[in-house]
Every structure is written in structure tokens, then in C-alpha cells.
Design a protein around this nucleic acid. Structure first.
Length: 635
DNA sequence: TTTGGCACCTAGTTAGGTTT
DNA sequence: AAACCTAACTAGGTGCCAAA
């Protein structure tokens, strides 16, 4: 039940006319609805309009109350805009929404597209008309229409309504202007037709012939539409197979009201290429790199009315992510120069950089950092090679290729880096919703031929605030609570990482101890296979010195890795803790809750007959060697 | 060359069982 | 009841191939 409903006034089926302060929306229908601002979303808005019979929606604007039409219109592009609008609705109690419709006639749409191409070659005469056709480039900053096409042509569009434009001009008007321009010297073609350079080059020659084909088809298209242009080549009826005769002359159509759809490859609806899709969704993917494919498909469907295949979406997303990563690399590469510049231009500045390498060394020697990276303590006595995955990356990517190998020291170094980053947070800091995790796959083989992999996850837990901060808008509190609730669903109490961090008063890390990864003897046995009592895997890698097993509460000795002699419960269980102290040694806070989970999933090529850990310790992967699902295990 | 479809593979989550 | 674990599941990435 809504506690508050604001009045939302929908204006649709009309169009913007006038200019400047006299800009207005005319010939439209107005519907008023009482709406709970908390329930507003872009999809909800579109649904409401759809229910009202409002079709061909191109753009939705809302007008900020109390501000004139020409300055107060804001384009609704995402839920963020809707949130802004909801804020206005709460403040003012009402808000106006204006709908700009698409051009109905497909012919007009074609002309509109082609018309913009004319602008790209710098024909100033058309700039105003573009805005008339569909408010395409009206933005939210006072409707300053600044088109990319206009920019390329060295033009700058005038503010909507302030440039002598007739808002009620329709696409046909635009097309006529377009045609006039063509008949007056065929501006689109002249630069190419007059260019005789490179005639001897076969590629240029071929390109010219292609151009002529395109030009002729385009002229044919105009002819069908009743336009007479210089250079027109009459359509050869022989080119058309039976059933397409009517296309040669629109007047022969049985139903003149029926819109003409060309089957011409140039003017028919172009196929949405993967590259185009990449452009369409790149903003959304950059905004949320973890956006699921299905959401992208829905988004494209809702926003553009296009159905796209999953594999296309996959590739598009992949391209965007790759391009972003490339940018990161460039930016990272310039960090040092940036730091030098800061020191040079701002005397007295200090620049600290913490670098992490994928090689064995964990720090760059040139780094003047006071954050100990413990490179010298990095263990090097772990199993041979590991595969790595990037923190917070859920899957293998091209940037983290399957075959990429790094030594164990690098893995632990990376884990350390993550841990230090976590501990480095000031007392009041939160990582936000979500886990930061690091995973390493240990590929272990040994002389009896078993091959396995283990995953070590170091996960920051409970980083979601228990209470929603006051500065979080009401509208998002529910989501934050839901996320917090969802995070809290993790079962059991995972083991912890122990470490000591000394901070200064500003939360800056002065020193740390190397964290000890503590886990049960059984898990240790599974990882390293050298504990008395046998092991799940039969590899005999020495236990690294950083890997600490929990001692017995009664004997103080190490526990046996055996299901019939399990580690007894201790008051602190297996919990480690992170201790924050100030330089005087006074505890600041319990860093805790940086957890480690150790799993082992072993794909044994030769199954051992002595699986000492019983049913729970089954080392069979749930996957077959072919990647399929195995039948559920039954005792 | 692009796209769709598929197989294969990996990572992360969680329900529910087992052990202590 | 807590700690720990596995199986089942979902989501996603990569490579290959055939068709357009």
C-alpha cells in the first residue's frame, strides 16, 4: 500500500511546437494518474503508456515543476532519471511527462536516416530539420540540440525552439528539403563523382563501381517515392521477378495506403550487426559490467524493439569489457607519470603507489610505499603451478586466459594484496554490497597419476552495513536491505584469516603482520596431502609455512586429518581475527570477517581406493570429464 | 566476415547432509 | 547448534563449425 501518491500528468500523441519560451506540446492527449513514487521505474512508465494506447514512443521527457518548458524538460533515459523525477514528484506532488513519438511511415524513417548523412558531409541547410524530425538529439540541459553529425560538419545546433524551427514540421517536410538539396546539384554524390583520383587502383575502381550501384539504387528508391532527381535511372522491370512488379511503381500497388517496404539491400531495414549492438549497449555495460546477458537482451528489446541472439550479446559484451580493460591498462601505464607530475607541480606532495605483479615479486622496488607487502615472506613451497582468476571476476576471460600460469607466490601475493586492501579501509569504510574474492586453482599432479584442483577463496564478508545509512535515499533503502539480507544468507561460520594491522589516526596502514590462513587439518590434508592419516589427494607437497592448522584445545598438538579423529570444538573455533591497533597498541576495531573458505574438488583420473575421508570427502567432481553432469551420488 | 548454435568448461552460490 | 562439506544448480566464457 502506497503511503504517498503524486499526480503524474502524461502528455502524449502530440508534438513539440514553438521555440524558446513559447515551446509547447500541442495536439496531445493528457492523462492524469496518481502514482506512488517508490514504484516508478522506466519500465513502469513505458507500461503505463502502453496501457494507455500510446504507441511509437521515441523519447519520454519529464518537465521539472516550476521551470519553463524550454529549460525544464529532462529526457528519461534510465531508471536514474526516473528516480530524479520521483524526487520531484515527492517534493512538488506532481510532475508532467511528455512523449515524443517515432515517425510512423517507414519511408520517412529512411529519409530521416539518409538526411543525417547529408549533414555529415557538412550541409548546413539541414541542421534545423533534423531536430524537427524527432527531437533526436534533444538533451536534458535545456534542450540544447548538439548533434554529433552537426559537430562533424562544424555546426552547432541551436537550442530547440530558438532557432527558427517549426516544431510541427513533419518528416515529409524534412524529406522535401532533402530532395530539394539533391535536385540542386546532388550534394551527396558530387564530391565522390567529381573525384577522379586513384582511378588506376583496382580497389578504388571497384569501390567506385560499388558506389555507383549504391547511388543508382538510392535514386531508384527516390523515384519510387515520386521524387525526380538528376541522374535518375529508370527501373528496369526485367530486374524484378514475378510478384515484385508493383514495386516498380508505387501507384500500381493494390493498396496505396499500405506502406512500401523495399527489399533493396540498401534501404531495407538493416541487420543489427554485433558492432552496432556493441555501441548500443556499451554505456549500459560500462555502467554495470556484471549485467546479465538476459538483461541486455531485454534492454535492447525494450529500448530498440529489436530481438538479439545470445551469442551476439555475448560478443558485444565481451568487446565492451575488453575495450574498458584496455583503457584501464593505458590509464595504469600513465600513473607513474601522473604521480611525477603531481610532485613536480605541487611541491610537498607525496605519491604512494602499491603495485602488484603477476611474477613472484609482490612489489615494485621503486615503490616508495609504507605499506608492507611482505614480499620476502611470500611462500614459494606450494604446489607447482596454478591458474588464476581475477578478483571479482566470476569466470575465465580472455584477459585472464585459461592457460595463463603464475607461480604460487604470485597467487598468495595477490591474496595478500587483497587482504591488505581490505584491512586498509578506514574504520568507517565499507566495501559495499558484494564480495571481493580471489580464487586460485591448484593443478596438482603426482606420481600416482591423480590430477586435481583446489579453490581457495578469500572473501570479504559482511561488508554490507547492518543498517542503511541516513544519506541513502528512501527509495533505495528497500533494495539495500534486500541486498543485505541476501548477503546474510551464507550458511555456517567460515574460518577466518588472522592478521594484525597498525593504522595511524587517519586509517592509514602503518604496518601489518602477514595473515595466517587457518583451516582444519582435514582441509589442509586435502590441499597438501602430507598429514598423518592419509590424504584425499595423494600429492606430497610440503605444507607451506604460512599455512597454519588449528591446534587442539586439549593437547596443543596438531589434529589428525581423519574423519574419526576430527578437530574438537574450541572456544574460538577456527576463527582468526584481524586486529586494528593504533601506534600505541590500542585496539581500534576487530577487522575480522575476512574469511577464507577452502574447498577441494578433485577430478581424479585414477581414483584412489582408499578415500580416507568417507562420503563427505568424495573427490569426484560433479562434472564428467566431458563437462556434463554426473548422476547424483548415492550412498 | 558475421552470426547462431552448440559443446565444453569454469566459477560462484546454496540447500541440505554429516560430523563434532 | 556450529562447523564443515558435497551435490546440485545457475551463470558465464571460449572455441568450433556451419550457414548466411
Amino acid at each position: 500500500m502506497a503511503f504517498f501518491e503524486g499526480i503524474v500528468r502524461f502528455h502524449y500523441s502530440g508534438s513539440f511546437v514553438g521555440e524558446g519560451e513559447s515551446l509547447r506540446y500541442e495536439n496531445g492527449i493528457v492523462d492524469e494518474l496518481g502514482i506512488d513514487p517508490d514504484k516508478l521505474s522506466k519500465i513502469e512508465l513505458e507500461e503505463l503508456l502502453k496501457d494507455a494506447g500510446c504507441k511509437n514512443v521515441l523519447h519520454i521527457y519529464y518537465k521539472r515543476p516550476g521551470i519553463s518548458m524550454c529549460k525544464g524538460l529532462k529526457l528519461i533515459e534510465s531508471d536514474f532519471d526516473v528516480l530524479d523525477m520521483a524526487g520531484e514528484l515527492v517534493d512538488r506532488g506532481e510532475v508532467d511527462i511528455y512523449v515524443v513519438h517515432k515517425v510512423d511511415d517507414p519511408h520517412d524513417a529512411v529519409l530521416e536516416l539518409e538526411y543525417e548523412e547529408v549533414i555529415e558531409v557538412g550541409n548546413e541547410a539541414h541542421v534545423d530539420a533534423v531536430n524537427d524530425v524527432g527531437l533526436d538529439d534533444v538533451n536534458d540541459a535545456g534542450l540544447d540540440a548538439d548533434t554529433d553529425a552537426g559537430k562533424e560538419g562544424g555546426l552547432e545546433n541551436e537550442e530547440l525552439g530558438a532557432g527558427g524551427q517549426d516544431g510541427d514540421r513533419n518528416a515529409q517536410d524534412a524529406a522535401e528539403i532533402h530532395v530539394e538539396e539533391f535536385s540542386n546539384g546532388c550534394a551527396y554524390f558530387v564530391p565522390v563523382e567529381d573525384d577522379n583520383s586513384g582511378d588506376k587502383d583496382p580497389e578504388v575502381k571497384f569501390a567506385r563501381s560499388e558506389f555507383e550501384t549504391v547511388r543508382d539504387k538510392m535514386l531508384d528508391e527516390f523515384e519510387r517515392s515520386g521524387f525526380s532527381l538528376p541522374g535518375f535511372r529508370p527501373i528496369d522491370a526485367a530486374e524484378y521477378v514475378s510478384g515484385l512488379e508493383n514495386e516498380a511503381d508505387p501507384s500500381n500497388n493494390l493498396n496505396p495506403e499500405e506502406p512500401y517496404y523495399s527489399t533493396d539491400e540498401v534501404f531495407s531495414t538493416p541487420r543489427l550487426s554485433q558492432k552496432m549492438l556493441t555501441q548500443l549497449v556499451s554505456v549500459d555495460i560500462k555502467r554495470d559490467p556484471y549485467i546479465p546477458y538476459i538483461e541486455i537482451i531485454q534492454l535492447v528489446s525494450e529500448r530498440y524493439g529489436l530481438d538479439v541472439e545470445l551469442s551476439m550479446v555475448k560478443r558485444a559484451k565481451s568487446d565492451v569489457v575488453r575495450s574498458v580493460a584496455a583503457n584501464y591498462e593505458k590509464e595504469f601505464a600513465s600513473l607513474q607519470a601522473y604521480g611525477e607530475e603531481i610532485k613536480k607541480t605541487n611541491m610537498g606532495s607525496s605519491v604512494w603507489m602499491q603495485c602488484h605483479k603477476d611474477t613472484g615479486a609482490s612489489t615494485d622496488e621503486t615503490n616508495p610505499t609504507n605499506m608492507p607487502a611482505n614480499a620476502s615472506n611470500m611462500p614459494t613451497d606450494l604446489p607447482e603451478e596454478v591458474e588464476t582468476s581475477h578478483p571479482q571476476s566470476s569466470s575465465r576471460t580472455k584477459l585472464n586466459p585459461k592457460k595463463k600460469k603464475a607461480n604460487v607466490a604470485a597467487i598468495v601475493s595477490a591474496a595478500m594484496f587483497l587482504l591488505l586492501k581490505l584491512l586498509q579501509l578506514p574504520k568507517s569504510s565499507q566495501l559495499g554490497i558484494g564480495n571481493a574474492s580471489f580464487a586460485a586453482n591448484f593443478l596438482s599432479s603426482n606420481d600416482v597419476g591423480s590430477i586435481g584442483n583446489a579453490t581457495v577463496n578469500i572473501t570479504s564478508a559482511q561488508q554490507v552495513p547492518q543498517t542503511v545509512p541516513d544519506n541513502v535515499p528512501d527509495i533505495s533503502k528497500g533494495k539495500a536491505k534486500a541486498a543485505a539480507k541476501a548477503k546474510g544468507k551464507t550458511k555456517g561460520k567460515p574460518p577466518r584469516v588472522a592478521g594484525r594491522v597498525v593504522q595511524d589516526g587517519n586509517g592509514k596502514v602503518l604496518s601489518t603482520t602477514e595473515p595466517n590462513f587457518r583451516t582444519s587439518p582435514k582441509s589442509k590434508a586435502k590441499l597438501f596431502g602430507n598429514v598423518q592419516g592419509g590424504s584425499a589427494s595423494t600429492c606430497n607437497t610440503p605444507t607451506p609455512n604460512w599455512f597454519e592448522t588449528v591446534s587442539s584445545a586439549s593437547t596443543g598438538g596438531l589434529q589428525q586429518a581423519s574423519t574419526n579423529n576430527k578437530r574438537p570444538r574450541e572456544p574460538r573455533g577456527m576463527e582468526g581475527y584481524g586486529l586494528y591497533t593504533n601506534p600505541q597498541g590500542v585496539e581500534i576495531e576487530d577487522a575480522g570477517l575476512i574469511t577464507q573458505r577452502v574447498h577441494k574438488i578433485v577430478n581424479k583420473k585414477i581414483k584412489s581406493s582408499s578415500e580416507v575421508h568417507g562420503t563427505q570427502e568424495s573427490n569426484n567432481s560433479s562434472l564428467t570429464s566431458k563437462g556434463g553432469r554426473k548422476a547424483p551420488w548415492k550412498p
